[in-house]
């Protein structure tokens, strides 16, 4: 587990925010997932040691929240909203399109390593449904055509990177 120096600095800083070290469990998990994309077992043990806990205490938190990933994901995380408004106007089709474009299955890393496609619940932009969140960027009115457009764009970027 290779954490960036900035992550390490933020971790040390965030621990000081709490009267008890163990309260740092959640923020540390977020910081590590932001940095390396998921929470490997090594990270659980690293956090436990850092916060003077037992690994089981951190493991409980990791498994409680579905937002923590135990496996690596693709370079980009495509989150397709499937709550009512989006579902009504074609979110499932949008999602299938992404999977088809990248030849992948829900929750899996695409063969080219570029994306992981997942469903999420309401992204609070129901007026512009269907919506898709790619990493931190919100895409609105994503029908199948727009999904194709976005996919092409991602592929082009990948090609450019070489």
């Amino acid at each position: 587990m290779n954490l960036q120096p900035e992550t390490l600095a933020r971790i040390d800083e965030v621990i000081t925010h709490y009267p008890e070290k163990r309260s740092g469990t959640l923020p540390l998990l977020h910081l590590i997932q932001e940095d390396i994309g998921h929470i490997p077992e090594e990270a659980i043990e690293w956090i436990a040691e850092k916060l003077e806990l037992e690994p089981i205490n951190v493991y409980e938190v990791v498994t409680f929240y579905p937002m923590f990933r135990r496996k690596p994901i693709g370079r980009r995380h495509i989150k397709v909203c499937r709550t009512l408004s989006c579902a009504l106007v074609g979110a499932y089709k949008t999602c299938s399109k992404f999977q088809q474009e990248f030849d992948t299955k829900l929750g899996k890393v695409s063969p080219d390593g570029e994306v992981t496609v997942e469903f999420v619940e309401c992204l609070a932009s129901c007026g512009t449904a269907p919506v898709v969140l790619i990493d931190e960027e919100l895409h609105e009115n994503v029908d199948e055509a727009k999904a194709k457009e976005i996919s092409d764009h991602i592929k082009a970027e990948a090609a450019q990177r070489g």
Partner: peptide
């Protein structure tokens, strides 16, 4: 000897020993 805990949640909550312990 703090090795037991609950993983997952809701009706999936499961008592477990930390893997490897």
């Amino acid at each position: 000897d703090d090795v037991l805990g609950f993983v997952d949640r809701g009706s999936y909550s499961t008592l477990t020993c930390y893997p490897g312990k």
